[in-house]
Design a protein around this nucleic acid. Structure first.
Lengths: 220, 220, 220, 220
DNA sequence: AATGAATGAGGCTTCATTCAT
DNA sequence: GATGAATGAAGCCTCATTCAT
């Protein structure tokens, strides 16, 4: 009689809660999001939320890790299309930037609120950042091995890359009326490739962006 | 005959409160620090805190801005000792890293908890990061003008620099048993200078650090 | 099969809170009643109170208006039983006095604490008093139209009536060991009817009260 | 050397505090006036206030009684100028109304905030109202004795008079844009004299006021 | 599975009063 | 006499979590 498995509906409800939480956390931050808000947005009740998740922070944690999973997968798919080491690094960079450009709230969740959630989540944050920087480090190591770039401290370099990316996205998120995030790509690419010692010839010319397009100067 | 000005003691108490708040915010974060905690640590009462400050976030704001002031002043003093553009940038970098190395909690306050404080402070955070990245941008612009480095997008580059620095410090703060922060300096210096197009000859050789000294691999 | 509607119990609890608040406000006044007191008296918790009402003053407001509603309804029912204008006015008077006599605390809430609640409620108070005096004014206007009383300033007269009533009740409330409130009815009736120009013959003889029965002289 | 008695200055300061308190209590009410507010307005410090008065409510009490004293004295002076009983009552009425008309804040203090101050002051209020109604009662008793009015329950009547007066003043205070209080005098006089059985001939014609002049109907 | 109601610890802020200087 | 600083008891409200139905 049932058109859907038993449990199918439950799974759907669970998903609705996650979506609602995702949106709420991204918008208002962890501390400023009440479980009631999530329940309301998911069109269920507080009790309903607690049926599917043991605590508020379990929701947050799950969101953090699945979101990161998605992003990592996306990066890996993009990287797999390239073979040349530097091109692979570029692909990773582009994938990340492109994803955030299209999913402002995802960026917000991953990059802005991790600490905001409080000390409980610092380990979580640590893991997340670690995961990403090690992903980058892997590509850099490959490039070193392939002699595409000189030997260098790939640990520090990958941290620097990730930090640079992070900061750029964060500032873009907080800016009043930012231009498209992708506008920053050429300049960022140049900065990062240079920092890893990629030869200038490989980098090529950097097109001059419409000055100030990404972060218009606000009169203030 | 009074050994202390009138108000001298009051000022001292105010300072004690700020110190206590500084430590508490740095350790536990804004949201997880109760005014009672601050009062207790400052050996006064809640009412005493409220005599000196109108609200909890006024304390936070004052701390943020004076701490930033101190750091900026320190950087400017260090930079003033150098004349050659790249050397100036290096001095700035070293000053920041050195300061944080010696004041772990200051770093924590400025770099980790800004967002944690909640959306009220995002503007504050924005200002802070902006201030620092523009400081860096100034030095980069000078270097471009002096032809010490090729023309480049100094806005993006300075954001990248700040982000790289930020991330490095943050990871150092969150690491379990990190080595001295200064150990990271040579590698970071190389990465950043390269990213700005400083010629390889000017950068010189990067000493090989004791592998993994800064972030010892944790079995996990 | 449930013996009680869903929500029935909730409504009961809500009512219990209102009752408790009513009693507390009437006894100690708005400012001197803590939400904790209300919760305690309603055998629930502070949180329970806040589940049913958004703020403390929402409770007060609801109490004010429903109490006034009840009283107005009572007066209107009593008045409807009479047709002759002066008799209607008398009925109204008697209904109010009788209600207060039986519900000391209701009187207290409506008449003593309105201002005590603070300036926020002055508008509320204004409305309440206005409502009552206009009710009276209506009856007086009818009486004028029916030529039962001479033309007069019914606005001022109704205010005077309400004030007289108010003061009498207030003094009765505050007196140490007052006699029954109804004892004051004959004299008050005479005073008010006379004030509206009702002919002496219609008023009739005023029975001599046991001297001082309402407000026994206190040695002091 | 001193041009003023010792203590003269102190007395002046005390007076300044009372004035400031008077204004503050009248404007914001007892509970919403902080001792700091009083100190500030009196251009002294909190400690200064506590040098002159033991507690906040002592200030209030003193203000209440001296203000009442002044008003009583004024009434008695006005009454003393008349000999005929009804005229004396009229004089009292006129004096009170006239005083309030000129001292809106005094009225506010005496009539609006007495209960607002909380239960501590209910006795105080009781005394105040009692004092006034007995003053009136005295004049009514004289009038009865002089056979200017028929025998009646002067206690209840005086309470009614006071209540009527009180309510009229209160509504005038709370009205948005009330006309001059004195405009209400003729009608109020008529109401009250009639209520005490003063013959219609003695009352005379009541001039028709500009309709609604005292309480303009507000569209709402 | 879901709901709404209840709980109670904890947070920020206010303010009358006290007191050392 | 006066001042500013300090105290601490309340007060209102929020919210993660639990639970009976």
């Amino acid at each position: 009689m049932a058109r859907t498995d038993p449990g199918e509906q439950s799974r759907r409800r669970r998903e609705r809660i996650l979506d609602a939480a995702f949106h709420a956390f991204s918008t208002r931050g962890y501390r400023d999001t009440a479980v009631d808000d999530i329940a309301g947005a998911a069109e269920t009740s507080k009790g309903g939320v607690y049926f599917h998740f043991p605590t508020k922070d379990a929701i947050f944690r799950e969101l953090m890790s699945t979101t990161a999973d998605k992003l990592v997968a996306k990066v890996e798919r993009a990287v797999a299309l390239e073979t040349e080491p530097v091109a692979r690094a570029e692909a990773a960079l582009k994938a990340v930037l492109g994803t955030f450009a299209g999913h402002r709230t995802m960026a917000r969740l991953l990059f802005l609120d991790t600490v905001g959630a409080g000390r409980v989540f610092q380990q979580e944050t640590n893991n997340l950042h670690d995961r990403f920087s090690r992903l980058i480090q892997g590509y850099l190591d490959d490039a070193v091995t392939a002699a595409a770039i000189p030997p260098l401290d790939t640990r520090i370099t990958s941290i620097a890359w990730f930090g640079a990316l992070n900061e750029l996205v964060a500032r873009w998120l907080l800016a009043d009326q930012p231009g498209p995030l992708e506008d920053a790509y050429p300049a960022l690419r140049a900065v990062l490739l240079r920092s890893a010692g990629v030869p200038e010839t490989r980098i090529g010319a950097v097109p001059d962006p419409a000055a100030g397009s990404l972060f218009p100067e606000q009169p203030r």
